[in-house]
């Protein structure tokens, strides 16, 4: 099913690997690392200054596909809200034995509360199970793009890229 990003609407892991955007298992084994899921030559570069460590490069021309230096990346996640395409994720396969933490951008209201469980989804929006939200970050600098971190079984770390949007009218205390 490796049909290409313009057919299925998201890059397959194989495509990400071809662009050098998927971290090596060796790098994953050393802690959180960024995955920039952006493989089209589009005129956009805010991810580059979003990284203080210079781990993401676009350069000239502005349509270059981002290049990630996995050695420079510390998995801090500051770049996630800096991508206007919401295409940046941080995956930590060392979160706990058998568990991974996936951080992703989220722009829906209401925001889930830290400590609650949510249905986790893959790149196609299919529910893969439930996961605990361990972090909800939304500062002024992020300009309304929240970053959530959800814990999932390790075998889902390459698949899960978000949670199912919570229904509007959902109030805190429900859905636990």
């Amino acid at each position: 099913m490796e049909k290409g990003v313009e057919i299925i609407g998201f890059p397959s892991i194989k495509e990400l690997q071809e662009y050098g955007l998927y971290p090596s298992e060796e790098r994953f084994s050393r802690g959180p690392v960024v995955i920039v899921e952006c493989v089209q030559e589009i005129p956009c570069n805010p991810c580059e200054p979003a990284c203080n460590l210079g781990a993401i490069k676009i350069g000239e021309p502005i349509t270059n596909v981002p290049r990630v230096n996995e050695e420079l990346c510390t998995g801090c996640g500051l770049c996630i809200a800096g991508c206007p395409g919401l295409a940046i994720f941080v995956v930590d396969k060392t979160h706990a034995p058998g568990l991974a933490a996936v951080s992703f951008p989220y722009e829906y209201e209401p925001l889930p509360e830290k400590g609650t469980e949510a249905e986790v989804v893959n790149r196609k929006g299919q529910v893969m199970g439930r996961g605990r939200i361990i972090r909800v970050v939304k500062t002024g600098k992020m300009d309304q793009t929240a970053v959530l971190t959800v814990v999932v079984p390790l075998e889902l770390a390459d698949e899960v890229r978000g949670i199912k949007r919570l229904q509007r009218g959902w109030s805190h205390g429900q859905g636990k």
Partner: peptide
């Protein structure tokens, strides 16, 4: 058409929200 017209990053956002794109 036989392929998605817009940017894949926009497509990916709606795909992971569960919206099918029927070519």
């Amino acid at each position: 058409a036989g392929s998605i017209g817009g940017y894949a990053v926009h497509a990916a956002k709606v795909r992971r929200a569960g919206v099918p794109i029927r070519l």
